[in-house]
Design a protein around this nucleic acid. Structure first.
Length: 333
DNA sequence: ACTCCACTGGAACTCAAGGGTA
DNA sequence: TACCCTTGAGTTCCAGTGGAGT
C-alpha cells in the first residue's frame, strides 16, 4: 500500500515544504498579495506554459493567506475559467465562493451580482485560472472595479490574455505584478518527482532516482505529464521502476490527460474530434460533410464552427490557414 | 479588376428549462 | 398553478475576408 497517494495527483496542492522549485515565486506572490507595507497590487499575473506549477502556486498562496495572521478576514476564491469562461458564469462562481447571498443563479442579473461585490466585508482574493479562456474580458473590468478585491490571473501567455481586450480595459490591467514560471529543467523535475515519490514510498534509492530522471527527461518540462507518469508507474504497474515501464507509462499518461479534456465534450464535439483524428489535415468542407454522414441529427455549420473553436480552446485541435485554405489537425498526433 | 465561392464570427433571434412570485 | 424572468444552447442571417478563376 502507498501512503499519501493523493500527492500523485497532478492537481494536488502540496504543503509549503513540498514545494521545491517555486519558492521564490511563491514568496513574491504572497508578498504582493499581503496587505502590508506599500499595500497590495490590484492585479497579479502568473504566466508560463502548461505544467510549470502556476495553478499549484496560486492555490497554495490562497491556502497560506487564509492561515496568515497578518491578513484579517480574507476570503479566497478559485475559479477555473476552462470550465467557466462566460462573464456571468464567472461572476456566479465568485459570488458562490464569497458566499454572497444571491436568491438563485438563474434569474439573478449581472447588475445584482456586481452590486453585491461592491459591498465588501472582507478582503477578497480571486484567482482566475486559465484566464486566457475567458470569452468576455469585460468581467476583468467588473472585478477590477470591485473594492478590496485582489485578482490573480493565471495564463500561458500574456498576449493571449490581452488579445481581444478593449483598449480602455487593457490600459488599466497592464499595470500589475508579473510572475513568470518557466519550463522546469530535467533536474528540477527530477527533484519534484523525488519529493513526491518519497512522500508515498519513503526514501528513493539511486536506481529509482535514475528512473525519475528518465521520466523528467521525457516529460518536456511539463510537471503534469511527469507526475501522471509517476502515478501510472506506482499505481498501475505494481511499482515496476524501470525505463521500459516508463516508455509505456508516458504515452498512457499523456492519453489520460487528453482524455480528461475529451470527457468535457458533448457527443457532437467528440464526433468532430474523432473525424479530425481520422482525416487530418482536413478542410472545413470535408469535415462538415463527414460529420453530416456520421450523425443522426446534425447541428448547423454555425454551431460546428463554435464547437471547433471550443476544441481549439481546449488545445485538442489546431487550425492552420484562413478561409477556404483552413485545415484542422489533432494536437499531439 | 471583377466575380464567385468558401469560410468565419458577430448579432439577433427562438426555444426549453429552472426558479421566483402572486 | 399560471405567469414572469433569465439563462444556455442552438439557429438564422449577414457582413467581411481572402483565394481562385476569368
Amino acid at each position: 500500500m502507498l501512503s499519501n497517494p493523493e500527492v500523485l495527483d497532478e492537481e494536488f496542492v502540496p504543503e509549503r515544504e513540498l514545494v521545491v522549485h517555486r519558492r521564490a515565486e511563491l514568496d513574491r506572490l504572497l508578498e504582493t498579495l499581503r496587505p502590508v507595507g506599500t499595500g497590495p497590487a490590484d492585479v497579479v499575473y502568473l504566466l508560463g506554459p502548461t505544467g510549470t506549477g502556476k495553478t499549484m502556486l496560486a492555490r497554495l498562496a490562497l491556502d497560506l493567506l487564509l492561515d496568515d495572521a497578518r491578513v484579517d478576514d480574507a476570503t479566497p476564491v478559485y475559479v477555473n475559467c476552462w470550465q467557466h469562461y462566460e462573464r456571468l458564469e464567472i461572476l456566479y462562481e465568485i459570488a458562490d465562493g464569497l458566499k454572497l447571498a444571491l436568491p438563485h443563479r438563474q434569474g439573478t442579473s449581472r447588475g445584482e451580482v456586481l452590486s453585491k461585490l461592491d459591498e465588501p466585508d472582507t478582503t477578497r482574493y480571486v484567482v482566475l485560472d486559465e484566464a486566457d479562456q475567458i470569452t468576455a474580458t469585460e468581467v476583468l473590468y467588473d472585478l477590477y472595479e470591485a473594492p478590496d478585491l485582489h485578482l490573480v490571473l493565471v495564463a500561458n501567455r500574456e498576449q493571449d490574455l490581452f488579445e481581444d481586450m478593449a483598449p480602455r480595459l487593457r490600459s488599466r490591467l497592464t499595470v500589475g505584478t508579473r510572475i513568470e514560471c518557466g519550463r522546469y529543467s530535467t533536474e528540477e523535475l527530477t527533484e519534484i518527482l523525488a519529493k513526491r515519490a518519497e512522500a508515498v514510498l519513503g526514501l528513493v534509492d539511486g536506481d529509482d532516482r535514475r528512473v525519475l530522471e528518465y521520466i523528467a527527461g521525457h516529460a518536456g518540462g511539463d510537471a503534469r505529464v511527469a507526475i501522471r507518469t509517476l502515478r501510472e508507474l506506482l499505481t498501475e504497474r505494481e511499482l515496476a521502476f524501470s525505463r521500459e515501464a516508463v516508455d509505456e507509462a508516458l504515452p498512457a499518461a499523456r492519453d489520460q490527460l487528453r482524455q480528461k479534456s475529451l470527457d468535457a465534450l458533448n457527443p457532437h464535439q467528440r464526433t468532430l474530434y474523432q473525424l479530425i483524428t481520422e482525416h487530418a489535415p482536413v478542410n472545413p468542407q470535408t469535415l462538415y460533410a463527414q460529420y453530416r454522414d456520421r450523425v443522426e441529427e446534425p447541428r448547423t455549420e454555425r454551431t460546428l464552427r463554435a464547437y471547433l473553436s471550443k476544441l481549439e480552446q481546449y488545445n485538442l485541435i489546431d487550425s492552420e490557414g484562413e478561409t477556404s485554405r483552413r485545415t484542422y489537425t489533432v494536437v499531439g498526433e
